[in-house]
Write a protein that binds this DNA or RNA. Sequence first.
DNA 1: CTAGGAACTTAGTAGTAGTAAA
DNA 2: TTTACTACTACTAAGTTCCTAG
Length: 655
Amino acid sequence: MEEDSIKKKTDQASREGRKKEEDGLLKKRKPEKSLETVATEAKSNNAPSKKVKENNGKESRVPNRNASEADGEGVALKWWEKEDDENDDVKWNYLEHKGVIFPPFYEYRKFLVKYNGNPIELTADQEEMAYYWGQSVGTDWETKEHYRANFQKEFTKTFDKKLGYTNLESFDFSDIVNYINDQREKKKAKTKEEKAEEKAKKKVKDDYYGFAIVDNDKEKVGGYAIEPPTLFKGRGKHPKAGFMKARILPEDITINIAENAPIPKCDMPGHAWGDIVHNNEVTWLAFYKDDTINTTYKYIFLAASSKFKGLSDRRKYDKARRLKDHIEDIRRDYRKKMNSKDKFEKQLGTATYLIDVLALRVGNEKSEDEADTVGCCSLRKEHVEALADNQISLDFLGKDSMRYFNTVTVDPQVWLNIKSFLEGKEPEQDLFDKINTNDLNSYLKDMMPGLTAKVFRTYNASTTLERELSKKDVSGLEIEDKMAWYNEANRQVAILCNHQKTVSKAFDVSVEKQKAKIEDMRDYLAELKSHLGKVRKGKEGLDEGKAEEAAERKFRQAGYDEKMKPIKRKFPNDVERTQRYIGDVEKKIKSKEKELQERDENKSIALGTSKLNYNDPRITVRWCKQNEVPIEKVFPKTVRSKFPWAMYSDLDWRF
DNA sequence: CTAGGAACTTAGTAGTAGTAAA
DNA sequence: TTTACTACTACTAAGTTCCTAG
């Protein structure tokens, strides 16, 4: 079941590819079922090996193969081994799945809730809301002003005005909060057996809901669970954070299946799907619209490992690669525009420059009901400053309200343009007042078919990764150093794209501990050296117990608890071994320091986003092959399962 | 030509599972 | 074996893009 080495896969793939060409078998081969396939299907009851009658009398189809398996077992023909005809208005000819699963209803427990110290009665709906508030107590959400205010508004308006229950602070939800905390404790205290049992239950659900049949393939479904109602937790200062997110019922759901596929069973008694459609020009399996928090569309799609996702992902990267052939032209062109007398052109050129050079997002308009975040086209004067020496400073909240804060030297013409665009404007006025995202994308389309602003992020990310990786020949290095180098290149991409994560609360504490431990190792090193001197002179060496006691005392004085133990002391009574120990400890200190430094550099940078969405995986695969780094060292399981199509790229592949 | 509907990609966080260190 | 920390995954929010209707 373990994945083969990449090399083996490549050989196999190219062999098969060649064979097919020779045989003229590029056309769809009738897939034969291998023994393995049959065995797998028999083992997992997810594959409908018997024809099952569903409620509309249609029969479930038996998939020929499991398309989500990338390990080569029992798969007759994989989509990435076929030519991409690019023409896929029709996404499927057959689609069958089990629909979605709903969260349990709220259980009305009649908790004791007080207002100004007096017990009050809550209806089931009120209690449910209060319960969701209780879930926020003790988290950061509890103290967020807008979240509090919105919840207060929405919750208090459910009461009769005459009661005067208007103030969130005056409510006492401790009964609810205690219950929630109890439940959390219980969850933590679960035994191995209980956990295993839960896991088994989850697997049964996964086996049932987690797969769809698309044409002849069995495909993995993405998230099929309907989001439970709760208080909306929008990022940043979202105007609607703290409001109730509605409970979704089957009537809200539209199911998309083939006409001749069985209608999935609705798991909520007394309810029925809102609609059944047979739209084979889209890839979604189910969808609903939620109007409680603005208007949001939610979809059930296939998982990232599916053909639908993989094919469009590969197209995305290939489009970004195509940009390579146009980039010089485009850069020349937008620079020309930057110099134009026409203000529209001037802004178009300047904005394109920022998107290309700083990897900014295009920045569509947003409504009043969303968090105030911006991208390139929606930058306002207050976000931009023209400094001396052709430098500009950008400071704004981007997607997910992540701060983009950067001071860069730009092209002199860009600097002049920005300065002029800023002139005479109020802080809240748009930097680019003559253009919008539509103009920008139309311009890009003219320069290259299919080109849009986001392609630049993919292009620049992948280009950066490839360039950074090639800056050093790592072939002779230890595997850890190779990985460190890969991560360093990955880091450069993450910085370019401004992919951040919040530093965990425990981070500083754990860094302090690490430092103290390194300090302790240094002490030990000094002790070893002094011990060496003594042994050389034939004198009695240091005492291990005493040294450890002293180190222990030092830790306690610094306030560390009992669990924090100093490094084990060993003072051998011969020169040779002592010297070896010295070498060992020195090495250990160095590696720990390096580790610490890396942790610090990475503490607020998220590498995963670029790995999953921006870096053409074939760059990584090639680099790994070239440097004999097993792919699983840099691509965790989920990443590998997303990119089966990339595993075959060989040594001369270039982005 | 604009607003907003529809479909799809990209994003960070919380919590859990896995693993290394002690 | 326990603890401490890291790595992953699940979840769901927040973008982009394309399109259509008014």
